[in-house]
């Protein structure tokens, strides 16, 4: 029987590509986010590509009070429930420097909002005894860098949260995959200087599906980022603090 996926941050290019890939293999998808008009279009597309059910639902990572209807809806769904988290926001560091209050939003979008949702969802997934949770982290979360360390810090928090959730859910038969994408060709990276080896969202979606199938714990996508980050993680701090990368 096909699974039902709840996709948080369903308007992102990676989420859209992932939802389509799920639809093509016959899974149902709930696309959650703020732009319901956009999500409805993606839902229609998923239905035409083979999803038995695809709908848009309102979700704002900064408003946990609004999570309940989605969770109720999922509780009523039969069969396997899985979740994928694509939420996150990355205002330019200079804007954060000018207004430190922006940090709260970045942390809510990239870490605490989805964490609160997953925390409420976890008992449901445990009860079903199967299913997957895919959490989008970032290579930016592996090390704090000059250009985006607030975003990186939020993602690092999310990585650690996912690691713990994996430890917990593994006991029930469910599984958690942490995905760390490098540069992906999305609206967030479009036209930014210094982009290289930019991956297509479709390729990332296929990488994620494979990781779910193989019950991988942590993946970098594209895979070569594992090597890049292996090096970056091992640069000694006295040197790293002087680098501008």
């Amino acid at each position: 029987m096909s699974a039902t996926w709840i996709i948080l941050g369903g308007s992102s290019a990676m989420a859209r590509a992932f939802a389509r890939a799920l639809a093509a293999r016959g899974d149902a998808v709930l696309l959650a986010g703020r732009d319901l008009d956009d999500l409805a279009a993606t839902a229609a597309d998923c239905r035409l590509r083979g999803a038995p059910m695809a709908e848009a639902v309102a979700f704002d990572a900064r408003d946990p009070a609004g999570f309940a209807p989605i969770l109720d809806r999922l509780a009523e769904t039969e069969g396997e429930i899985s979740a994928a988290v694509f939420t996150g926001s990355m205002p330019p560091q200079v804007e954060i420097d000018a207004d430190p209050g922006l940090i709260d939003g970045v942390v809510a979008d990239s870490f605490t909002g989805p964490a609160r949702f997953l925390q409420a969802l976890a008992p449901l997934i445990e009860a079903r005894g199967r299913g997957a949770i895919v959490g989008l982290g970032s290579v930016a979360g592996d090390r704090g860098r000059l250009g985006n360390y607030v975003y990186g810090a939020a993602k690092a928090g999310f990585h650690t949260y996912l690691s713990g959730l994996r430890n917990r859910l593994g006991r029930s038969g469910a599984h958690v995959v942490t995905v760390k994408p490098g540069f992906v060709d999305t609206a967030m990276t479009w036209g930014l200087p210094g982009m290289f080896l930019v991956a297509a969202p479709d390729a990332v979606a296929q990488d994620i599906l494979r990781a779910v199938r193989r019950r991988r714990n942590v993946i970098y996508t594209p895979g070569f980022w594992l090597l890049i980050m292996l090096i970056i993680r091992h640069v000694p701090e006295p040197i790293f603090k002087k680098m501008k990368i």
């Binding site: 308007s11 290019a13 859209r16 732009d35 008009d37 279009a41 609206a187 036209g191």
Partner: peptide
Amino acid sequence: ELARPERRR
């Protein structure tokens, strides 16, 4: 110079 919208709005 290219813009690449991802949403209709």
